Amino acid sequence: MQRSESSTLPSREYDAIFAVLDDCAQAASLPEFKNLLMDALHRRYRFPNTTFLTGATFRGAFRDPHPVTTGRITPIIDEYTAGWYADDMFATPQSYAALARNRAICHTSLRELPTEAVTYLDRFLYRHRLKSASVLHLALAGRSHAMVGIFDDEDKSVPPERLAGLGLLARQLSTFAQTLPGHDAPSWRSALTPRQAQIGELVADGQTNEEIAATLCIGLDTVKKHVSAVLAATKTRNRVEFAKLVLTEELARA
């Protein structure tokens, strides 16, 4: 959703957005915010099956060992965290790029998914009769990430205008969520510029230089220079060592 598109939303979408924001405004901490948002999505949008996952990096959020879940997701979340999270279609570079533009997307908007993500859809979501999936990407305090999943079990995909409204909602929720008490920013970020930290996250999430260049729409040489700067600033010798540093800090705060 482009920002200009928000002006074309039906009034009912604005009503839902303002209602959710009012509901969540009572939160004084991130845990409270998670529960209030899950309840608000159910009451204001009639979304009964939801998840709230957080992590120090985009892909790291899918490894959240303590997700908040509702509805039909609760009995299957252990199966997800046992291994399916690694193949989640929303954890792909393609999804990262789409969410950077829109903040809310449906799985049907992702084309040419890798084999693992297709398998995840067929053997996990569809096997559990979850027919559609959408996700909101929120920015949290300390540059952490939150992925709010919405799953349908009645063959009712989120319509485009509602998805556009959810994108606007995600931006507003991010602004509020960043004011809530949370974990301190991971120390590996402290010596990096915002752009270097962004690229560092993608390196830690396993993206190659070519994938990072495509995801961020920048040149390959630029990516290589930033990656070298990240490794030098964090005093790590290679990408594997850097990824271990990020994962160690992520586990420490779980």
Rank of each mutant, 00 (worst) to 15 (best):
R63L: 09
Q26P: 02
Q198E: 09
F124T: 09
H145Q: 12
P65R: 12
S144F: 14
V223H: 00
L121Q: 09
I73C: 15
Q26M: 07
V203I: 07
L192M: 13
Y120H: 15
S187P: 03
R3W: 00
S29M: 13
R44P: 01
E241Y: 04
Y126L: 11
N102G: 01
T222F: 00
T69H: 15
P93L: 02
Y85V: 13
N49V: 13
Y14C: 01
A243N: 08
N49Y: 11
D39N: 13
G206K: 03
I73D: 15
R63W: 06
P31K: 11
I105M: 01
R162Q: 07
S187D: 10
L168N: 03
R111M: 11
E211P: 06
S4F: 00
A56V: 07
T175Q: 03
M38Q: 15
R72M: 14
C217D: 07
R189D: 05
I150L: 14
H66P: 01
F33V: 11
L37P: 05
L36D: 13
P181G: 11
T74Q: 13
S174E: 12
H226E: 08
E241I: 09
D155I: 10
K156S: 14
Y96T: 01
Y45I: 05
G165Q: 09
S144H: 12
A104H: 02
R101F: 01
Q178G: 06
T119R: 15
F124D: 11
A25Y: 09
L247I: 05
A98N: 03
A19H: 02
A27L: 08
T175A: 04
E116L: 08
A97F: 02
A40T: 08
L9P: 03
T119E: 12
D152C: 10
I76E: 13
A104V: 02
Y126T: 10
G142S: 14
R171N: 06
W188C: 03
N238T: 03
P31E: 11
I218F: 00
H183Y: 12
R127Q: 14
L220V: 00
F62V: 10
T92P: 02
T248N: 12
T108M: 03
K156E: 12
G167I: 01
A100I: 00
D64E: 11
I17S: 04
H226A: 04
P31A: 13
A100V: 01
A197T: 07
P65E: 09
L36R: 13
T69E: 14
N238R: 05
H128Y: 14
A233F: 11
V158H: 03
A170T: 04
V223R: 00
Y80N: 12
A56L: 07
P194W: 02
E154P: 11
L166E: 06
T234A: 09
D87P: 09
L245Y: 08
P114R: 07
A97V: 01
S228C: 08
L220F: 00
A117W: 05
T115L: 10
A177D: 08
E116F: 03
T81K: 15
T222E: 00
L245H: 09
R237E: 06
G60I: 06
A98G: 04
A232N: 07
G149E: 13
T50P: 10
E79M: 14
V20Q: 06
L231S: 01
A252L: 10
G60S: 07
D88S: 14
L30I: 15
